[in-house]
Design a binder for these strands. Structure first.
Lengths: 211, 211
DNA sequence: TGTACATCAGTGAACGCGCGTTCACTGATGTAC
DNA sequence: TGTACATCAGTGAACGCGCGTTCACTGATGTAC
């Protein structure tokens, strides 16, 4: 149900409009995609006047940042959750990769906003920053643990980037419905993901990290 | 120089407005990026009224398709050109990958449009279609030649998708200027590309295709 | 406990903007005779 | 070779639209005394 529908019962002061706006934005993304995500649409969906968001966000960009932030949090949780599913350290990279792509499949529009809104600002996306808690650092840390001590730091960095690129590319490609035939032939979405990742060096536990 | 500047000398009938519009669109992409690519802006850049494009394209989408088509042609040429640079068949995949990413770096806005305009139509991008002459088929054919006869067709398909995903991911990631420090440390843009690709299974000639 | 008042968080109307597209038109071209 | 006329490829003004943002305002809340 749209927030607008319960506007009559809502008191003049909302209470937590900031969060309500971010939630409304996510609903719009899920239902109508990134191109429908305007400030006015978000206010409408939240049942509030188009000027109201300006009491909580400097401008549209700041609202989008908040939405992207939630997205990166969710993705981080998914990737961290992969640890529980990995039989051993060698299999962990694959599980993290699968988690990453599955998140993008479950929230394709949000995933797109997570990257787009940082490109507008000429910044690295939040989850790729060197923030010790970022999703990117989780991947790099995993590589560090997988790699022997003889592996150079620069190779760990390159492997992390390579893995990130591969996962991102697969995330974008797997949205094309034309692969559905192949997916079915392989036994479903997840089998397809694992099949593709299996061809990418760093997702093959039996192979050493070093080139 | 903008086409508008020579409008006075132009006869009433343009002669080749269709091509001029596509060229104008490419100029806009190069100078101002994808968000500036409106039908009106293209007509303006071509020095023509906003209604003129409708004599050559059904709507904005059709103009964008034509721009994307040129882009896929250019990318196809780049990838085909990689053959000349590859010392042997084993190195060809890497050269094709490098060509792909270099194209995306030279024409980042065009590259974006090439994918975006097909997503709008819920279609596979032109270069990924199973058209025997598409860029995707060039990659798959190369894998077929690299692979021994014992490799199954489905693995060739998966490897092609994996390579495509990796290249696309790297194309998108390499636009972030935050990697510049790392790139310099490695000796430049191309060394960075080869370094990342080197961590991705199918770009390592010494490794067999099969997982 | 009651009251004055500052502050906060909304409203709704308005602003200017650029967009895609349509329309009646007109200038240029090419073709039939 | 000249002329009438259909067709083609432009023009420029207008349409309605949704957008981001601002503004003067007002209702609700909280705090000082």
């Amino acid at each position: 149900m749209s927030e607008a529908a319960i506007a009559e019962t809502r008191p003049y002061h909302h209470g937590d409009l900031r969060r309500a706006l971010v939630d409304a934005a996510r609903r719009i993304l899920e239902n109508e995609g990134p191109s429908a995500l305007s400030l006015r649409a978000v206010a409408r969906e939240a049942g509030v006047s188009p000027a109201a968001p300006y009491h909580h966000f400097k401008d549209k960009g700041e609202l989008l940042d908040a939405v992207a932030h939630v997205g990166w949090d969710m993705l981080g949780d998914c990737m961290t959750g992969a640890k529980a599913r990995a039989a051993d350290l060698a299999a962990l990279m694959t599980e993290i990769g699968v988690s990453y792509v599955q998140f993008s499949q479950q929230h394709p529009a949000l995933y797109r906003v997570m990257y787009d809104c940082s490109r507008d600002k000429d910044e690295l996306p939040e989850g790729m920053q060197d923030n010790e808690d970022s999703a990117y650092c989780l991947v790099r840390e995993t590589f560090r643990r997988v790699a022997g001590p003889e592996v150079q730091e620069v190779d760990i960095e390159l492997a992390t980037i390579a893995a990130w690129c591969a996962a991102h590319g697969l995330a974008e490609m797997s949205t094309f419905k034309q692969f559905e035939g192949l997916k079915e032939g392989l036994g479903g979405e997840e089998a397809f993901l694992r099949g593709v990742l299996g061809h990418l060096g760093m997702f093959q536990p039996s192979r050493p990290l070093k080139t």
